[in-house]
Design a binder for these strands. Structure first.
Lengths: 114, 114
DNA sequence: CTAATCTACAACCAAATGGTTGTATCAACG
DNA sequence: CGTTGATACAACCATTTGGTTGTAGATTAG
């Protein structure tokens, strides 16, 4: 069975919000290449460990990354499915435009008279 | 000629942020179906005219919509190209995952020794 | 057990967000 | 001209965000 593709408005809000930060997008990119502990990630950015921790928490809350225990570290790894869901949300908007082309004939005039 | 596909981090930040609000996504959807004045849009949401105006301004700043004068109203209409750019930004992340599959063999072990 | 490392979390702060109301401008109608 | 409708914009407010520091809890090494 195909996983339900539709997210609620609130979920799409949070998903796009999570992606609306360059640091968070970079964390996603880095953890795609391989799992990384929060400490390693924190070394990569000009901000405190706690700040990076918060970014990871935002990503985790929307499911873009998950944490996996390895000894005493928690490694962060990203989840492809969720980015895919974001793409589908954008596809919906894009499809609306496709649809518009179909309906152009009906819309050549503006709906209100003047 | 193909429009340059790459946006700066800051631009992607603003683009995703603009899309991270259900009201703004709805404005984009509605103005895809046909141009609408800000006043007409404002009637559709349970908030003040000024609030809707601000949402439109956010969308306008990132180029998701533009305004066109018609008599005494300014009609809002959405720009398909920009959503497309957002999709490409997501595609970059998605491609990283594709790439990971290629490099799986190299990454079967974690990079750090212990 | 103790020390060291990694993580979690609370408290705090400045700036941005999302909403409000009110006022001013600008174009069309009589 | 004055009035009306559509828009712009400023001031204000509550909440959230993105950052900080500091403290406490887990887990591993000795």
């Amino acid at each position: 069975m195909v996983v339900s593709t539709n997210l609620s408005d609130a979920e799409v809000d949070r998903l796009f919000h999570a992606l609306a930060d360059a640091t968070r997008r970079d964390i996603v990119r880095r953890t795609v290449e391989g799992e990384l502990s929060v400490s390693r990630l924190a070394e990569a950015y000009p901000m405190s460990f706690a700040a990076v921790q918060k970014h990871v928490a935002v990503l985790e809350k929307v499911g873009l990354v998950t944490k996996v225990r390895h000894g005493r570290e928690l490694r962060v790894r990203s989840d492809p499915d969720v980015v895919d869901r974001a793409r589908r949300a954008l596809d919906e908007l894009a499809e609306a435009w496709q649809g518009r082309v179909q309906r152009m004939a009906d819309l050549l005039d503006s709906p209100e008279g003047d």
